[in-house]
Amino acid sequence: MRRDDLTQHTSARPLLEIRDLNLDFGTPRGCIHALRNVSLDVPAAQVIGIVGESGSGKSTLAYTVMGLLPENADVTAGSILFEGKDLLKMPAQARRSLRGDRLSMIFQDPMTALNPVRTIEGQMIDIQHHEQGTRGEKRARAIDMLRRVGISDPRNRIGAYPHHFSGGMRQRICIAMALLVKPVLLIADEPTTALDATLEVQIIHLLKDLQREIGCSVLFVSHHLGAVAELCDRVAVMYAGEVVEQGAVRDIFHNPGHPYTRALLECDPGRIRKSTRTLPTIPGEVPSLLGSKKGCIFHTRCPQAFNRCLQENPVEYRIGVDQVARCHLHDEERLVSA
């Protein structure tokens, strides 16, 4: 099934449309194919989750959308349509003007996302450079947003420095800064990774409430399946630079169609019912992304792989009304049923 067929199920054009995106990193060892044929939609006012192991390309995809890539990165094919305009074809200045305005991002580590030698007030006022108004009006908006994310006594604490706050409070400040500009698309790159379990739950609920209030779309990158299940409407599963499955959260979690998705879910500690000293893992290692690859990228670790998986790259097959997976098994199932 092609991506265009899937989008027919939605009445309005998605806010963000990623189509057949390929991205390489040049290295002394050769060309690393970090993203391969990635297609993904982010509809208006929805939360889309991206999950996968470390090194699967989740953060690379997020940074590609934001245009925050290193000099050795090269987008070799595809498009990123935001509000109908291809970000990859925009002049550099036009794309920069979107960041901190229509596009906003929460970075992974709250300990390093804030400037340690500037006050929270200075940073929150500066981020409103696209907004009209006096410094006093911007300060008032910043105080109000700090209050909404749960910072106590924000009028006095806004003058403090980042090191005066705990990790959880700093992440709340980062969320406040990202939402202060009222973006239409918020990209959250593993925003709870550095937090303990209790704070993680609080941050997820906070994001959920603020997203509903502001009405923005969210691209939520995470390795935590429980957080994705709690926050997201849809989910895309990435493995070694490819989107191997995507669909509604309920469909993916209750009826995973790709062997890798099933393996991820089986490794989720939240699904383990019996006490054990050994957590389940996916055997094998993520393959090297150097050079060209033949066949399914997951075949070396897949317990259901057969000859076709070694020779032919799988296309997307529809599993349900709004769920697709890149796996030859679904084509074989059709042949058997026919």
Rank of each mutant, 00 (worst) to 15 (best):
D126M: 09
F107Q: 00
M238C: 09
V286A: 07
I252Q: 10
Q246Y: 14
E285Q: 02
Y239E: 03
I151Y: 04
L329I: 13
R148I: 02
V51P: 11
D5E: 11
H163L: 10
K182M: 04
E200H: 00
V235E: 00
K138S: 03
Q46N: 03
H9Y: 12
L207P: 01
F25K: 07
S97D: 13
G133N: 12
M105C: 07
P303S: 09
I297G: 00
M238W: 08
Q171I: 03
C327Y: 11
K182D: 13
A305L: 06
D24Q: 03
R135I: 10
D109Y: 02
R118S: 13
S166C: 07
L103G: 01
G57W: 02
N22I: 01
G270K: 15
G320R: 13
G78S: 08
M1A: 15
R102W: 09
H223F: 13
I18C: 06
P110A: 03
G100T: 01
A197H: 04
N307V: 05
P28R: 12
T119C: 12
M238T: 05
Q93L: 13
Q246C: 14
A73C: 06
C31M: 14
T281G: 05
R212L: 10
R139A: 04
I48C: 08
D20G: 06
A197G: 03
N156A: 09
L35F: 10
D41K: 08
T27G: 05
G257I: 15
I282M: 12
Q171F: 08
H223I: 08
R273H: 13
R250S: 11
E131L: 15
A113G: 01
K293R: 15
L290A: 00
E137S: 10
L68I: 12
L185K: 07
L329N: 01
R29Q: 14
I173C: 07
H33I: 00
G295N: 05
A45Q: 12
A140P: 00
L185T: 08
D331S: 14
R118N: 09
A178I: 02
P70R: 06
R250T: 14
L290C: 00
L231A: 05
I272D: 04
I173T: 10
A12P: 00
